[in-house]
């Protein structure tokens, strides 16, 4: 029982340990450090990074890539269809599967 009361009081003490907390102070040279960071940030690569990460640029690039992919996919599919039709034609020619002409369809019986 005494143990339980002890644990409760320690828990309360821990929960109240941030009462009266003083604000932590940043480095007195922070402004100089920020200035250095700003100069670094103005370099060409970071400018390029900032430009690409703009939502309108990023969305446009994604759309262009998507359209390009769709176009490539469609052209591959259509070229395959053409190739297949060509193969069938060749096969038909080789085995004389051409559609018979009209007089051949109704030959005159002797």
């Amino acid at each position: 029982m005494k143990d339980k009361g002890d644990i409760e009081s320690k828990t309360d003490a821990a929960l109240n340990s941030l009462d009266g907390l003083q604000r932590a102070a940043a480095s007195p040279f922070l402004y100089t450090k920020v200035q250095v960071k700003l100069k670094e940030d103005r370099s060409a690569w970071s400018a390029l990074g900032r430009f690409i990460s703009q939502p309108k640029v990023a969305i446009s690039v994604c759309l262009i890539l998507l359209l390009l992919n769709t176009w490539i996919l469609l052209s591959v599919i259509s070229s395959r269809v053409d190739e297949r039709a060509e193969q069938l034609n060749d096969l038909a020619l080789e085995y004389h599967f051409e559609t018979p002409a009209l007089p051949e369809q109704n030959p005159i019986q002797p």
């Binding site: 821990a14 340990s17 941030l18 932590a24």
Partner: peptide
């Protein structure tokens, strides 16, 4: 341990920050 914690509460504060 946050630098602004009062000296006598440092141990409890460290446990609280961990929680």
């Amino acid at each position: 341990i946050h630098p602004g914690v009062q000296l006598e509460k440092k141990q409890e504060a460290a446990i609280l920050f961990s929680a």
